[in-house]
Design a binder for these strands. Sequence first.
DNA 1: GTCTATAGAGGGATAGAC
DNA 2: GTCTATCCCTCTATAGAC
Lengths: 215, 215
Amino acid sequence: MPKDHLTQTRERILLTAERQFADQGIAATSLRSITSAADVNLAAVNYHFGSKDGLVEAVYRKHLEPVNRARLANLKALLAANDKPGVEAIVRAFVEPLVIQANDGADGAIFTRLLAQSMHEAAGHVDRFYARENDEVLQRYRDCMQLALPNLTPDEICWRLNFMLGTLHNAFLDAGLLKLMQSDRHPRPEATLEKLIPFLVAGLTAPGESAVAAL
Amino acid sequence: MPKDHLTQTRERILLTAERQFADQGIAATSLRSITSAADVNLAAVNYHFGSKDGLVEAVYRKHLEPVNRARLANLKALLAANDKPGVEAIVRAFVEPLVIQANDGADGAIFTRLLAQSMHEAAGHVDRFYARENDEVLQRYRDCMQLALPNLTPDEICWRLNFMLGTLHNAFLDAGLLKLMQSDRHPRPEATLEKLIPFLVAGLTAPGESAVAAL
DNA sequence: GTCTATAGAGGGATAGAC
DNA sequence: GTCTATCCCTCTATAGAC
């Protein structure tokens, strides 16, 4: 019994929704707009996802869970192979899953754009799910980063991880304002990654307060 | 004839709007919500601003124009005093107006949060105004940054300015995910600035492609 | 310049037939 | 699992009295 295309409707909604959410924002996207573009019935959203919020959470879960699983696995492997990993290795362990995700089929790159919005739509739908999902991952990376950068205070580590997240999310936002300034319209995720790594590594390893005070 | 409180209604709308836009996002904020919180009549928005879009643009104009004026003035002063400014000086010239703005009265800090959303609501209201307003400023800073970092390709300068913008906007986003990780709930803008500068300067001055190729 | 009242569009959700 | 039809709500914008 092939069940494959029994879920076609559900998948079509999901694919169309993530595209429109990323393009227009979640609040500005109506279920009617999604279902008509996906060529499915309006009521199907509520049947398959319960509500608009349910659909939003499904979109996030679909993409965010694999990324965070990979981040945790990478970190574990890194710590198993080396009891004091370098900063660049840690950054790559965190960022590469996002690049892999961005290259995953036609819809992967769309989600990276959506991700950039997530930090701001905090007041709304995502809030609890998104924050909780990321919290564990960030705590582990914070601890590992502290190992790699013992000269920085825990406080400073938090600041810099926070900066890194901001940089990261905006970097994949379809090049942000970059397109206003040059010709390269749609950089591949790998190209962005290779520009990003030196910037992040240098920022993270910059001399901190204690180093300045030591002068 | 004191005209001061003849514009009270207009000001109240503006103040309430920027707060709610920053908290909930523009699309998710209704004129009803604004006018009832501001204790003014619903129709007053259309009288004073023409439309919701008009109100949005007024909020942006109010805060963004002074910031960008200061950025251009700072850059001009910097180039007048020194024909090859340092990276840190350039970064400060760009970022400090934002900090000053964030400390401007009760509503300044609110706008910095709104600013972080602007890169993502591009599809909507702000688009043309916000992009055009920032474009000139960014071009001048790009040119100046190229002077300070002659080893980087123009392409690389653009990437890094873009990264800087992402970092910057998220940094003032009410500390983003930082609050999940530690106790310091509402860092002052100056505190954020001092953490931010070393991160940005290090990232911007990191060795680039040409430097790597030279090895 | 401020108000009430309402037009007119569009939103999410659901009941019930198939 | 899919569809139509519809309920009920909220939204922006405006007309017109004061």
